[in-house]
Write a protein that binds this DNA or RNA. Structure first.
Lengths: 431, 431, 431
DNA sequence: ATCGTTCTAGAATATTCGCAC
DNA sequence: TGTGCGAATATTCTAGAACGA
């Protein structure tokens, strides 16, 4: 696409006329004055050979001063034109070898290699680092030709991004005043004449952050897993706690029941004692004296009957237990309900009550005893040789140790001992 | 502080002469040639009105091209001077992006609002979108003034990044030839005259990192909440555990107490049995002395038989205990091992067994009674109406159910059944 | 440290000759050329009064242009010398007002406020920000007078450290080529003429990033610690739960055992009752057949009385249950309720007391027995060795305490007391 | 121990390229 | 085909880190 530029003698057949912006004005004296008159910036497409574009007009000389982007066109100044043309050509041609080397590295290497810019930037003597001789002029005059800025800071930032490090000189440190002196940067793959190493210069991707990131992410994952496991564990513990709680409540119920049974037994035993002792007293009072068998009439049938009756009753009350667990208390609750079993089966206590009626009511007892005594004197009470000593001797006879009735394991075990046993067991369990 | 500038015809009373650097030179033709000669950049102090400084010299015309900073001063070029002056003034007055609105949005809004650029970019009629009229000239002439490029593509990319969308026109689509025509973009917060909406225009962040970031923060929040809940749950569980533990200790105490009571009862019963049986035994012993052993059934084998029977029972119970625990008592298990203490001292139950031999074994009992009766006629045995049957009938008479003495809830329930009951209760509790 | 400077007529006895670099060159014409020739920068120790150092040489005039650090020495230029001397003096004097304001802030404010440096650095029009007009010259000419460097980067770094922010101007963006233009910084407490605000300008400790980073890291750490603690707590809870579970199983076994023992006792008691009562019943039945109802006491009132008694007891127990629960059983309570039924019927224990009166009180018993013996000679009582006295003595022999039959802890303990005991125990456990 | 200087890195925005629908 | 977007690079402002005074 051509462009006819007013005030310019001739015609430049280049892509775009972009104007006079960002014109690169190299040191020129009064002689340059006229050149400025017809300065043009022309966009050069990447497909164009800059060299070709430079000579599109008979009387113009194109100078590309902004690599890959602009051309400066000036009429009839061959010497300057030639200089600029060569300068640009180098840059363009070198930049064309488009490998995977980042643009910054390519530009930098071009800059440093280019002898025309040695005034501002050049290789060190060893060729493994480069120097920026005049920072200020380099920034303001060289940088904008290659980059979209003229800040040394941005240039240095890019150097750092690509892994270049500043070369610190001892002598520089000593002579502090030389702070305006040349700065030196190096990179292991940035060597004089070795452009094949450039492809090893990689941009420092923000690895710091991802590194930090992944660590955190791993932490988070671990933490989340941990919390999840804790949660599930707690669910388990919770369920077990609830189970234990209910079991404990049941235990309390059981114990309550046992206590009541114990009371009943105790009452029963009490009354047995009364019953046993009463005839003694009654006899003592009435002075009864007869001898005759009491328990059996010699047919041996009674015990069986008792056993049968027992079994029957078992079945009945077994069902009552079921009904108790299944329905009655079913309205129920997480909490312990102690059922007064005696009230569920009032007849259970009847024997006791009968015993009470027999044993407690003096009149009745007396009467019973009176009757008994009157009717039949009991031989076993008459017998004079029915002593405890004899009983015990019988026990010895039969190898019976009556002292063993006293359960030593049990009777001597205190609560503390029980607890101690518990701990022993638990300790054993933990081993 | 004034400054007399050599080579400049006249005198500019401004603060600082900063040199020729970075002069902004807009398109000028041959006529401009002479003007360059006397171009100056003059610092304008912040306390000065740039406009006022423009006319500090009689023969100079000041042009402020850098807001707050520079003035271009040129003699006798009123037309250019006027143009630049206005241009700069607008910039000075309008631009001062002090909010958090991104630079691109501010620049864009300035561009569109600016009447001087209406030739290239302007609001639509409705004021809710903007048009780029001459894409090529806009890109090459306007864009580089505001951005570091002159590419329409980059401009559009930025538009897209900030959420602007191209406005598609039906007629445009139909008339394909009009592709060189104006392009139109819109954004819900980009309206004519409403610069207060601009702050809502957000850059479409690359979802890569911020997403990862927010996820992390959310994760952290979730984790914290989770841990907190776990903590509070644990406090609850802890309290419940402590309660349960104390309850269990109480249960142990209760059971210990009950065991002791049981032992007392057992002792009492033992003594009752002794007390009751003693006379019988004594008589028996006496009879032994007098006649012959009664319980021996004549061959002296009975006692041994009783003992054997007892031993059998011990073995049975021992094995049952083992099967219950799964291992021998000597082995260590995690669970509490309840030792059946009766098995440790078999003789403990001997009195009871003797009673059993007397009461339960029909033959034995009968025999015993018979013997007793034979040897020494006991009144209560001699009496034919003193049978268990009669006793029971008396019970009926008094409404007494002797079967109730046998607590079926208890006697028939095995440990397994108890566990089963436990499970029933627990299941009920979980409903 | 003395230093002989070539070209300088005389000798300067100052600390360090730092060279000619970074000389502050104010607008000079040709006349200044010769002055520069002999310019020197001399390090002045901080302990020296700059003014004193200024006159170390006879024909020299020292000018400290680097506050606290350097001296410019030039021969025979009194006017310039005087000017610089005053300039430095002001700075030094201002810097002396050492409040808690950091040196950098003081220097900066001095720099900006000082009208002599307005050429390079000055307040903005509004007075709430400052401008650096010519970055390059400012860095090389002004900075070394106040700081130990001449790098704009270091200056900007310090600005950032103290919270200054760059002010972005659209106009700057527009005129991209003029990047060498002024930079502007602002701080909320850095205002023209308001040096009292300076003390609010604090150095940014490296809390910014740590703020973001460490907060997260701290969060992570806290979370991890929390999760760890939860974990360990859960281990503990788990162990305790397992212990409790084992204890509970043991309790169940204990209770099962107790129940079986209870059954055995009950059976034993039943059989004892059968054994004891049978002859009585037989006699009674026989007598019933023969004569008349025995228990009626002749008026037929006994059965009814028995029933009443039973009913009474039922009522009592019922009410006790109610009072215990506070409501009927139909209501559900949270707590375990153990009903000790024996307490509600104190008379129940009377037989035991009677037994005590018979068995325990030796005198009474003896007397009773004696009476019995006297009134009606009982065979087993007649026997001198088969007396209750002997029985009791045997009991003593066996370590039997018949008082223990009456378990006061049990019979008199109400449910409330049990609960109270539980609480006491629990409280004790918590101490 | 804080402050200052220097080198390097982070973070956000900007520019370019290329792909996909 | 071109619009929208991802991705890589570039530019700018700010912050981190090491070291010395």
């Amino acid at each position: 696409m051509g462009s006819s530029i007013p005030g310019v003698e001739g015609h430049v057949n280049c892509d775009v006329l972009v104007g006079y912006k960002a014109v690169y004005r190299v040191c020129f004296g009064m002689a340059m004055f006229f050149l400025l008159f017809s300065l043009l910036m022309i966009k050069v497409t990447s497909s164009q050979d800059p060299r070709a574009a430079l000579h599109n007009g008979a009387r113009f000389v194109c100078k590309q001063l902004r690599v890959d982007s602009y051309l400066f066109i000036q009429p009839s100044k061959p010497n300057l034109t030639h200089f600029l043309s060569d300068c640009v050509y180098r840059s363009v041609c070198k930049m064309r070898r488009s490998s995977n080397v980042p643009a910054f590295v390519t530009k930098l290497w071009t800059l440093v290699e280019d002898g025309d810019t040695n005034e501002f930037i050049c290789w060190s003597q060893e060729g493994n680092s480069f120097l920026v001789l005049d920072e200020q002029r380099f920034a303001k005059e060289i940088l904008p030709k290659f980059f979209k800025h003229n800040n040394m800071a941005s240039f240095i930032r890019q150097l750092n991004v690509y892994g270049f490090r500043k070369v610190m000189h001892i002598d520089k440190v000593i002579v502090k005043q030389e702070q305006g002196g040349p700065v030196e940067f190096q990179h292991p793959y940035f060597k004089h004449g070795q452009d094949d190493l450039l492809e090893n210069i990689k941009r420092k991707v923000s690895n710091a952050r991802p590194e930090e990131n992944k660590v955190r992410q791993e932490d988070l994952t671990k933490i989340l897993a941990s919390v999840q496991s804790v949660h599930s564990k707690q669910e388990n513990i919770d369920a077990r706690l609830a189970t234990l709680k209910r079991e404990n409540e049941s235990l309390w119920r059981e114990i309550s029941e046992l206590r009541q049974k114990h009371v009943h037994q105790q009452q029963l035993i009490k009354k047995l004692i009364q019953f046993i002792v009463t005839p003694v007293q009654n006899k003592h009072i009435l002075n009864l004296k007869r001898k005759r068998p009491i328990l059996m009439n010699g047919n041996g049938k009674k015990p069986k009957y008792i056993h049968e009756m027992y079994d029957d009753k078992v079945c009945v009350e077994q069902s009552s237990v079921n009904s108790l667990n299944g329905t009655k208390n079913s309205e129920i609750s997480d909490d312990v309900i102690i059922c007064d079993l005696t009230e569920n089966d009032p007849e259970v206590t009847d024997p006791v009550k009968m015993m009470n009626s027999i044993l407690n009511e003096n009149g009745a007892i007396s009467q019973n005893i009176i009757l008994l005594g009157k009717l039949e004197p009991m031989d076993h009470l008459d017998s004079t040789d029915c002593s405890l000593e004899d009983w015990l001797s019988i026990g010895e006879h039969f190898g019976i140790d009556f002292d063993a009735l006293e359960d030593p394991n049990f009777s001597t075990e205190t609560y503390e001992e029980i607890l101690h046993d518990k701990e022993n067991l638990l300790n054993m369990g933990q081993r």
